[in-house]
């Protein structure tokens, strides 16, 4: 099988299974998914708290617990993302595809437009790719990677606020607050980033199922066993 090293496009058969996603990447993917669900739910509860609980405040710590779960999941999320960045360097070449779209490759760009045209029903069949197709790669970078950077840094800045200016936390992340023009803007951007990632999740899940059903490659099982199989000989 002949594959373009830069763009990941399959140029020639016969097709054989490729080990794409290594175990750490797969574990990371599902752990991130769990974190995102927990963070989305608790984050929404923080922005729109439930109706008041009665009784003395002494006996309830509900809202603080919601926030604590959010913080724990958020720290895991941030650490997972940081570890993933390291893995992008030490892992196989598919491990860095979502961080470094090969914008310099002509074939990648032509593949991007071809894929977009395919999704707009202007082309009958897509090209074959070992890893992400160029459009998926770009979406992963712009929506997921950039969105995650924004949500992690705004989140860390919001977390630091409880320690006050001059604390180690604030020294590390207070610049986000200054850059965006105040705590309220950090909250607003944090929430916008959440919706941005929710939008990503929606499109991601749809595309994964669609590709798994309609494309010539396995998609969902690839994120479970790591192997990309080609279901039929492409044209």
């Amino acid at each position: 099988m002949k594959v373009n090293r830069v763009s990941g496009r399959v140029l020639q058969g016969p097709y054989e299974p490729v080990y794409v996603y290594e175990a750490p990447v797969r574990f990371w993917h599902w752990a991130m998914m769990l974190c995102m669900i927990v963070l989305g739910v608790t984050g929404y509860l923080i922005a729109r708290p439930l109706p008041a609980i009665g009784g003395e405040a002494t006996f309830s710590y509900f809202f603080a617990n919601v926030r604590m779960i959010h913080f724990i999941a958020a720290m895991l999320f941030a650490v997972l993302f940081a570890v993933r960045l390291v893995w992008a360097i030490v892992g196989n070449r598919h491990a860095r595809s979502i961080f470094l779209p090969p914008l310099w490759s002509f074939e990648w760009w032509s593949g991007l437009f071809h894929q977009a045209a395919y999704y707009l029903f202007l082309r009958k069949a897509p090209h074959h790719w070992v890893g992400h197709n160029p459009l998926a790669q770009l979406a992963m970078f712009v929506m997921f990677v950039l969105g995650t950077f924004v949500i992690v840094f705004t989140g860390l800045s919001l977390f630091s606020e409880q320690f006050g200016w001059g604390s180690g936390w604030m020294n590390a992340f207070g610049w986000v607050n200054v850059l965006l023009g105040g705590s309220q803007m950090v909250r607003t951007v944090h929430q916008l980033a959440m919706w941005w990632l929710a939008l990503f999740a929606l499109v991601h899940v749809y595309m994964v199922f669609r590709e798994d059903i309609m494309s010539g490659e396995t998609v969902i099982s690839t994120m479970i066993n790591g192997v990309r199989m080609f279901k039929r000989e492409p044209r």
Partner: peptide
């Protein structure tokens, strides 16, 4: 820093109600 180091929220006397989830 001595006056603007912390948020109004951090030393608010209604903070226990915030932590308890008791809101107006």
């Amino acid at each position: 820093k001595m006056f603007y180091g912390q948020r109004v929220h951090d030393k608010c006397y209604r903070r226990p109600h915030f932590d308890a989830g008791q809101f107006v």
